[in-house]
């Protein structure tokens, strides 16, 4: 057991635990806090994978901005314990086997696919060959050359999102 493995298992456990807590929590604010836990654990895993820029963005945008927005709305609406209805029981009965089958299917696919084998054994071309970090310089070059049009399109998307949020949240006269 080397350090990367220990770090991986520790933070993978934290992430899964956070996700389970999200499901079990009865109050939305507890769900939000456990989701922040998942996101921070994932940021550490990104660092472990050598994606420093993505880890920073994960913390700043996801764990920071998006989750603050969620917590803010929960506080604003004073959301309490969620109600239980007959339908929620039906959803639980139907959902449990469905979720189980989904996990089984993904597991089956990954165990039997060629790509999974290649990645799993670590013999494919360049598979986890270097523990070196991705270069943020190269990433930004790629972002502003090959992906320039999608990048500019996202700025339009954010502009439209801001306008939409403002119009939706506007108080009617």
């Amino acid at each position: 057991m080397t350090l990367p493995f220990l770090l991986f298992f520790a933070f993978a456990l934290i992430a899964v635990l956070g996700a389970v807590l999200l499901i079990l929590a009865r109050e939305p604010i507890h769900s939000a806090l456990s989701l922040i836990l998942v996101m921070v654990a994932l940021a550490v895993l990104y660092l472990l994978l050598g994606a420093e820029f993505v880890a920073a963005v994960q913390i700043i945008v996801y764990a920071g901005a998006v989750m603050v927005l969620f917590v803010f709305v929960i506080m604003l609406l004073n959301a309490g314990v969620e109600e239980r209805t007959n339908w929620s029981k039906i959803a639980a009965w139907a959902g449990t086997p469905l979720a189980f089958f989904l996990l089984l299917e993904i597991g089956h696919f990954m165990a039997h696919s060629k790509a999974g084998e290649m990645i799993g054994t670590g013999t494919g071309a360049g598979v986890g060959a270097s523990g070196a970090a991705f270069s943020t310089t190269e990433l930004s070059k790629l972002l502003f050359t090959s992906y320039l049009f999608p990048f500019e399109a996202t700025s339009i998307l954010i502009l439209i999102a801001i306008l939409g949020a403002m119009i939706l949240a506007k108080k009617e006269e």
Binding site: T2, L3, P4, F5, F8, A12, A15, V16, A19, V20, L22, I23, S31, V38, L45, L48, L49, E82, E83, R84, T85, W87, S88, A91, A92, A94, G95, T96, L98, A99, L102, L103, I106, G107, M110, G116, I119, G120, G122, V127, G128, G131
Partner: peptide, 28 residues
Amino acid sequence: MSVVPVSYYLVLSAILFGLGVVAFVFKR
């Protein structure tokens, strides 16, 4: 220094996605 196999991350990703689906179905 040994590196954690990528398949481990994929399994974790699948588990988290599955838990997300469960939360999506269960939560009211």
